[in-house]
Each structure stands twice: as C-alpha cells, then as structure tokens.
Design a protein around this nucleic acid. Structure first.
Lengths: 188, 188
DNA sequence: TTCTCTCTATACTCATCGGTATAGAGAAAG
DNA sequence: CTTTCTCTATACCGATGAGTATAGAGAGAA
C-alpha cells in the first residue's frame, strides 16, 4: 500500500507543476520508483490516478463546506467561516488546491476538467443551498443563488490565487476584507 | 495567406475547446484542410501557432487597456471603462478570451502558461501603473498596486467567466455592480 | 507442501507526438 | 524559356503516448 501512496504523491507533484495533459504515465512511475503495471494495478488508468487524488484528498474540503453551509441565520459569520475554511485547506494542501484550480479553469472538453467538475459542482451546489437558506433572512438574495455562489467561489479563488503566488499573506485582516468585498455585491 | 488565417482560426477553436496540451499539430492541420509542412512554414512550431494567436488577436485588448489606464483623475470612471473594455473584448472574442483565461490559470511550468504569461504581465503592469497614478488622489492605494491590480483582474475574470458560462448577462447594471464590488475592496 | 491471491517487473502493443527531408506546383521576374 | 521564390504535399524520423500480456515473487491458508 506504500507504493499506492507514493504514486499519488508524485502524480500530484507533477500534475500541479506542469498540468495533467503534459504529464505521462511513464514519468509518474519513474518518480515513484515503480513500473507501469503497478500504477495500472492500483488505479486502472491515468484518469483513475487523478480521480483518486480528487476523491481522497479534496473530499475533506467538501465535507467541511457541507458543515459550514448548513446554517444561515448569521450570514456574515457563515461567509467568514467559509472563507476561513478555504484558506485553511489551501494552506494545508497547496499543491492540490493549485492543481484543482488550474483544472477548474481548464476547458469543458478537457479530460481533467471533467474529473474536477464533479467536485466543483458539489461545492457550487452546497453554496447555492446556503444562499437559498439565507434568502429567508435577506430577501434580495432570492433567485440569485447561482450567481452568488459562483461569485463567492470566484472571490475566494482570486484571493487564494494571490496567496499561492505570494502576493498576499493569509492574515485575518485579508480574510475580513475578502468577506466584506464579496458581501458588498450581495447587499447592494 | 488564406491558409495561415484558417490555421489560426482552427487552432483557436481546438485550443479553446480542449486545451493546448490536448491538441496535436496533426489535428489542427486536418481541421484546416492542409498538411503539416504548411503549418510549419507559417509558424515554425506548435508553440509558434499559439504565439501568433496571442500576439495578433490579444494585442487589441492590451492596446485599449494601455489607453484606458493613462489617466487616473477619475478613478471610478476609469474602473468602469476598464471593466467595459474587458467585457466588450470578451464578447467580441469569446473563444480567444476563454482560451487565454484557461492558460492564465494553468501551471507555471506549462508551456501554454509561459506564452500567455507575457500578455498577462503586460496587463498586470498597465493596471499597476494605473493604481500608482491613482494613489496621488487616494492615499490608501499607495504601495498596494500589485494586490489591487491582481484583485481587479480577478474580479473581472470572475464576472467574465460567469458570462462565458451563461450564468449572467453583460448588462450595464452587472458591470456597475462589478465595479462597485471591486471598489469596496479599495476604499475600505 | 501446495494452492491461491496480491502485487510488481520485463517486454511488448499500436497510435500519436512534434518535427522534417525532399520534391513538386505555380506564379513572378528576367 | 529559364530561373527563382513561395507555398504545399508525400512520406518519413525517433520519441513518447496510454495501456497490456505474461510471468514471477512473496505471503497466507489448506
């Protein structure tokens, strides 16, 4: 089972550096110090490697998000918690987050996009249901869940992208500012 | 010269749909109805095709941006003009903008990223110099040009991404909202 | 011991990758 | 009527793409 973990780790390293399409199976197994049949034994295909990576290591983020979006009585507090959750996750798994971000912005017909799209849709759905719940407290949210969820993710990813590239620090003040900036779009 | 234009058009079509890495030279020439030496005659390499695409079709955006960022006496008006300019360009060249966006978010060691990075750096630089100029009117901008330029591009791209996916229309009201949302981050 | 099951390596498949050597077609210039 | 230059096709290059057939090594169970 050690080879399996090593393969996943090396694949993440390579995918996050040069992209899914640019990496060959041969390259992954060489970095992991094994041979191709070992990879195909555990994952079945190159696609299977990426799916395992997403399913196993991105799942905690989605679980936490599901938790943070169940209550919407205090919208600003929930928004702050959601931002914090994403920042914490990106700090714990910077390579994974960078890879997922690149794939999320890749094209619809691209294989990597289709794999990440499942996890992305889950996040979008959780946020939409959050805004639906919030709309019972804030009338002007009603009917705009989809746009709000998307702009929220967009704002979060803009800030995390800045942090990943070293342009900003992940201070409480920055998170507060990001929440405020997003909130302005809601209550206007 | 017709074959050259057809090659560029088909390459854009394919790159924007499945990504630079996922598309082979063979596929491009087949869609264009020519053979490989024709492509290599005009562009020298696969990379050359993408460079021609960026240099020739993305340049108008950068020229317009250079124009819109020269004056910073009226910051809100300039910001609105910049947003409008990006929206107009994305509407005129949706495929190109989608492709550029995907490559911008792809990984640093990826070939496509490195090609687009030049154009991206130009935009970033123009926006930074705009904020430097604006700082003589708004003191709290000083020293934060880099972050502001990056979050401005992030906000713009979030909204254009939403428009490209059909989630929002490009109405004057939406543009106004985007400007307001971004501005909140500045003056806070 | 022997049988089975999980895991991994050697060595291979065929398709596609980016790129090119060579040559011919056609137009313009002399 | 030949020379020259631009453009394009046929046919190829070695390298690499994803994926696999076969077999052996080692552990656990009988």
């Amino acid at each position: 089972m050690d080879n399996r973990a090593t393969l996943l780790e090396q694949a993440l390293q390579l995918f996050a550096q040069r992209g899914y399409d640019a990496i060959g199976v041969q390259e992954i197994v060489e970095h992991a110090g094994v041979t191709k049949p070992t990879l195909y034994h555990y994952f079945g295909s190159k696609r299977g490697v990426l799916e395992a990576l997403i399913n196993e290591r991105l799942q905690p983020l989605i679980d936490q998000l599901a938790n943070a979006t169940t209550h919407a009585n205090d919208v600003p507090a929930s928004l702050a918690a959601i931002f914090q959750l994403y920042f914490d996750f990106a700090q714990a798994e910077p390579l994974l987050y960078r890879m997922q971000l690149a794939m999320w912005f890749s094209l619809p017909d691209n294989e990597a996009f289709q794999i990440v799209a499942v996890a992305a849709a889950q996040q979008q759905a959780l946020l939409e249901s959050f805004f639906v719940r919030a709309s019972s407290f804030h009338g002007n949210i009603r009917g705009r869940q989809r746009v709000y969820a998307a702009t929220l993710l967009g704002t979060i990813n803009t800030y995390i992208g800045l942090w990943l590239s070293g342009a900003i620090q992940a201070t409480p003040h920055i998170i507060h500012q990001a929440v405020q900036q997003f909130s302005y779009g809601i209550y206007s």
